[in-house]
């Protein structure tokens, strides 16, 4: 019938008039969040083993922390943990990387803040009563020193090796044993030259090879002149 479409439409709107409204009265009525909803990223500092996996996995450098060691057990402890939420893209990679499930997404979605800094979360676990070995800076220094010591040891060992068996030690930087012997002759007893080469051999082999070649060429020129 002509006009039946209009009546049908009117019927539908009339039905809607009495139906339950789907508007969510937000501040009073909380939205229903599903268990895997990704709200604010949170840390349970007690579960943290300070492995740093989360920091490594984060693509946006959201996470950062400082650590220390306990004096007695040498166990690592967290001194502070910072989540800079403004860069977080809720990718879940840190949560997946965390071996102790210390990181998790909460259901907190109301983030409004007046300053950018305010949406940063900083965890500072209570460390009173614990004797710490070294705070982060001290630890760093000792690590640097250790590396230096290691390098020095290696250099000394290399110098000794060159003096003891030059053919074998120097063959690592030159192409043949003959060249190695020639090089040892050129070097002779020049301590400074040996030390320089040894240092390079330990830290940068390619450079050492280049330097060795330069020494060889120089030596050959001297021979020809002499």
């Amino acid at each position: 019938m002509w006009g039946s479409g209009i009546l049908k439409g009117l019927g539908i709107t009339f039905k809607h008039l009495w139906e339950r409204k789907i508007t969510e009265q937000y501040p009073e009525e909380r939205p229903k969040l599903y268990p895997r909803f990704r709200g604010r990223l949170m840390l349970n500092p007690e579960k943290c083993i300070v492995c740093g996996m989360c920091v490594k996995s984060c693509p946006n450098n959201v996470l950062s922390f400082t650590e220390a060691r306990l004096k007695e057990s040498k166990k690592k402890v967290l001194t502070s943990y910072t989540i800079d939420h403004q860069y977080c893209m809720f990718c879940n990679l840190c949560v997946e990387a965390c071996p102790t499930n210390g990181l998790y997404f909460s259901h907190d979605f109301e983030w409004a803040a007046f300053k950018r800094e305010d949406i940063k979360t900083v965890y500072e676990p209570d460390l009173t009563g614990l004797e710490l070995l070294a705070l982060e800076e001290g630890e760093k220094k000792s690590a640097e020193k250790e590396a230096e010591d290691k390098l020095l040891k290696g250099v000394n060992a290399m110098i000794a090796a060159i003096k003891k068996n030059p053919a074998r030690a120097l063959s690592k930087v030159v192409e043949s044993e003959e060249e190695a012997l020639k090089l040892s002759e050129i070097l002779g007893d020049d301590e400074s030259k040996i030390k320089k080469l040894a240092e390079l051999m330990v830290s940068d082999k390619e450079k050492a090879a280049k330097v060795a070649k330069a020494f060889l060429i120089k030596g050959q020129k001297k021979e020809q002149e002499g």
Binding site: T13, H16, L17, W18, R20, K21, I22, T23, Q25
Partner: peptide, 9 residues
Amino acid sequence: ISGFIQLRL
């Protein structure tokens, strides 16, 4: 009424 018809409040 327009709200109610559109299932709003």
